[in-house]
Design a protein around this nucleic acid. Structure first.
Lengths: 229, 229
DNA sequence: GAGTGGTCTAGACCACTCA
DNA sequence: GAGTGGTCTAGACCACTCC
């Protein structure tokens, strides 16, 4: 009889886990569940929407809800600022700007950002450290068409990411994670030996349909990206 | 006055992006927004909850809602079955079981699953291919205490993951992604040359507080894990 | 104590999709 | 056409937190 949507959600999840409701099978309609749980339909609706978001059930108008045949579970990663990521581990964060240049972007970068040839860009190289040890090497391109104010920033004291989140909120971002051989620069700056890989996170950010920034974040192979669902 | 919660959400997101409402600043209360948008408070509530989930606003009772000072954006990754992942790319999926053994787990594995010494486990090695090319090497440990039915499965025709999602629904999973040097077995089976890294996804799965399975999925370094937010 | 968000209800209408 | 989920409303009460 408990009428909280979380309790209803958990009870339905329990029935699915206990296989009282089999994979692919239909679930009673919202109206029927509302009667069973002694709740309003809107409450049952909320519970089911949450389960659908989690991938446990599939819902279609007219067809009703079913237990997902092959639950597409999804993992959620929080994308914190490096500073927060490091300080959350109780380590001390350090930042160094290695270089700052205003130059025409290489063709590959220009194309990925969808910019005209010769579009003005800012190129930054930064090193982020944890307890003094190299943690992340950042190579960043910023479109000065999209964020002209970046021209007046020297980024000496704080990383471009912290400045960007406050000064150029983005609407969409594309993340890409992969493993790569460490390049010479990465070996040197991250203190890696020959043949060691790096874990790379790339992020391409847009505001509306205007590209703002492309960044490549390289970590030593001891880095772990972890999440729980 | 458009009364859809998505429209209200998008309008609020626009004001934040346009910096009409500054980072850290307070947002009008739900009641006020409901009047402004000509909607019910529940509708505004839904819009704001969605923005809070996305990390754009922070909400606290009594204190009200504010624009997040440092938006903690989160990325969501869908964790599909390998088969679906490959077929979604329009490529043809192939599977081969390389080995299947029922043995005592090595200490490192046993400890991570929190099992007693000598607990019975199943160890599988599988290769997943896309258009005939090696795509993923799977090394999997299954706790036979948690899933005794796995003893009767030979896993010759389909991978253990497909069998497990249908036969051992899990409650929680911990994912871990990192880059590693390819081991000899990985080089050979994934067709890599000396010094090439692999992209590794590890997953540890529990049902309740009982460990079910630990799996290490290694991809060639050409693999990209991509997501959009 | 008081103000804000969190949630529930009952009812209604709509949108989509299947037969 | 009809049945199901999607959403909105108006009103209410509760829970939490700040003063």
């Amino acid at each position: 009889m408990a009428g909280s949507w979380r309790e209803i959600r958990d009870e339905i999840a329990r029935r699915i886990a206990a296989r009282e409701w089999r994979a692919g099978a239909a679930i009673p309609g919202e109206a029927a569940l509302a009667v069973e749980f002694g709740a309003a339909r809107a409450t049952v609706n909320r519970a089911l929407q949450d389960l659908a978001r989690a991938g446990l059930v599939e819902r279609r108008r007219r067809a009703g809800s079913r237990v997902a045949a092959q639950p597409v579970r999804e993992a959620r990663f929080v994308i914190p600022l490096v500073r927060q990521e490091i300080e959350a581990q109780g380590r001390s964060y350090g930042y160094a700007l290695l270089s700052r240049e205003e130059i025409a972007a290489p063709e590959a970068v220009r194309a990925r950002l969808g910019l005209q040839a010769g579009a003005p860009m800012l190129f930054l190289r930064c090193l982020h450290t944890a307890d003094g040890a190299p943690y992340q090497l950042e190579r960043r391109w910023i479109s000065l068409d999209a964020v002209p104010e970046a021209r007046d920033e020297n980024f000496a004291a704080a990383g471009p990411n912290e400045w960007l989140v406050e000064n150029a909120p983005f609407s969409t971002a594309t993340f890409s994670f992969f493993a790569a051989r460490a390049g010479e620069e990465e070996r040197e700056l991250l203190g890696l030996s020959e043949g060691e890989p790096v874990f790379v996170a790339e992020r391409l950010t847009h505001i509306g349909d205007k590209a703002v920034t492309l960044v490549r974040l390289a970590h030593p192979s001891s880095h772990r990206m972890v999440t729980r669902i």
